[in-house]
Design a protein around this nucleic acid. Structure first.
Lengths: 268, 268
DNA sequence: TTGTTCGATATTGTCGACGAAATGGGCGGT
DNA sequence: ACCGCCCATTTCGTCGACAATATCGAACAA
């Protein structure tokens, strides 16, 4: 008979307020309205994300499912979901029957990411200045202090710190949509940098951050936008279009001034 | 033994050019280098996406897995993948153990989407003017002709058409990253409109499109940017912050100026 | 030695089924 | 008549296993 299911087909999303207006019978403790699932909170996703932003996972790295499952202590299905999510956000690429790899942007795409960042972040600094208030100033000053106090002893922590400056600006802008875009762009940009950086160049000239921060605190919008744009230009200038198709070129690059040959290959 | 798998761990992403240079033994027809999986090409995703952009799926609609699987003639696992992808892009929301629903933005988020669109699309028109060339002009003129010839006979086709104008501008900008963002924003904006629109108001004042198009063709950047911004303001003004939490309020809205009271409540 | 073919291995993709949670309706108590 | 509880049904989440495909190594021919 199949029972065509006449109702409840479109019940409307909304934090599951019970069908009627009656307040919940308190089966739940309180204040837990069953939040929507946020894949970004998944520990697997978080792990891969921070590993990437700290450059512990390099572009092109294969992310095998079974391997990750064992490494992170979960089952393959969670890994699959996490990888699918990261693939949707273009943090990883999935090839059919071959697996997932950390995304490696092309040179053109890297350029386009920076162009997009200039657009977005120019808007976020401007908006951040517009709606800057006491708590915002406190947050900004606190971050600037943290960056000033950073002694570069922990390269990974420093990398996170510089990225957080840009994210903080986007947060101060108060637009969650722009914030998400900025987050995504910053992450993907770090992939672009990792792909095309010259070996041994710093990631993000941290010297510019205090200047930008001061301009924001001074509410000098035009100068702050100009400084941010210039800052991003600076970062972009640090990358070069080396052969992005790697492997062979990578090897020639590695061995070209090294003079060693594989010898006779007997591992173990 | 476990076999720590000494090599090939990071082989680099790159369109799987065969391990050697030899041409393939011809199991594949030709010219198909195994492209990365693009979830956006999935027919299920496409179906839901166009259904949403044409407002055949309204915000809040429940997207049951088994139901969709039967409706679209696939298995549940494909539906799950598609829904996960759409959830990553915030087109749908997934509640644990409750299913997926077409995303219904909050009022603030709707405002933020428009603000973001002003930022992105101001940049895309500007860039489109900068790199406008012959084929670009042809495309733009062709689209303007199509919009001019549209007789609104097919409401769904008209909706797609107006969205495509904005996407075309973004395409002309030549920045794939910005293009993707514009695509996503346009789609989510249409969800915001569907959520908060006043019943019976047109979606996107199509009258503005010819003006903007002409300004682009005339390469008047300042005026085009201003026109685009104004156009988006126009659209945003058409929505109102009605109670977004729906159902009860939705019903009161439906019946509020209808003059009927529940009387003495004896249904049937 | 160089290049090709074939088989073994490993990894991914998919399916079916079961357990878990929530929804909805009916029942009994106040 | 209303409110709360309980159970049946539906739907989602997860696990295990199998099939499909690619990768790797070795044997083989030129």
């Amino acid at each position: 008979m199949i029972k065509t299911r006449g109702k409840a087909d479109r019940v409307a999303q909304k934090t599951p307020a019970r069908s009627k207006v009656r307040r919940r019978p308190a089966p739940r403790p309180e204040s837990e309205p069953v939040d929507p699932r946020r894949m970004d909170d998944d520990p697997v996703v978080q792990g891969i994300l921070t590993a990437i932003s700290q450059k512990r996972l390099k572009p092109g790295t294969k992310l095998g499912e079974d391997r990750l499952a064992r490494a992170l202590g979960t089952t393959r299905i969670h890994i699959r979901q996490a990888l699918a999510h990261l693939a949707s956000r273009k943090i990883v690429v999935q090839f059919p029957n071959r697996g997932a790899f950390v995304y490696r942007p092309t040179w053109e795409e890297a350029r386009e990411m920076f162009a997009a960042r200039r657009v977005i972040e120019a808007a976020t600094v401007a908006a951040a200045i517009d709606r800057l208030d006491k708590p915002g100033k406190v947050l900004l000053k606190a971050h600037m202090a943290r960056e000033a106090a950073d002694d570069r002893s922990d390269r990974w922590a420093s990398l996170s710190l510089t990225a957080e400056f840009h994210i903080l600006i986007a947060q101060l802008a108060g637009n969650h949509v722009l914030l998400d875009m900025a987050r995504e762009l910053i992450l993907r940009t770090s992939l672009a940098i990792a792909t095309f950086e010259q070996p041994g160049a710093p990631d993000c000239s941290p010297d510019s951050h205090p200047d930008i921060g001061e301009l924001v605190l001074a509410r000098d919008k035009a100068a702050a936008v100009a400084a941010m744009t210039h800052h991003l230009d600076d970062i972009e200038r640090r990358i070069q279009p080396r052969q992005a198709d790697g492997e062979v070129d990578e090897l020639t690059e590695i061995f070209k001034d090294l003079g060693v040959r594989p010898a006779a290959r007997h591992d173990s």
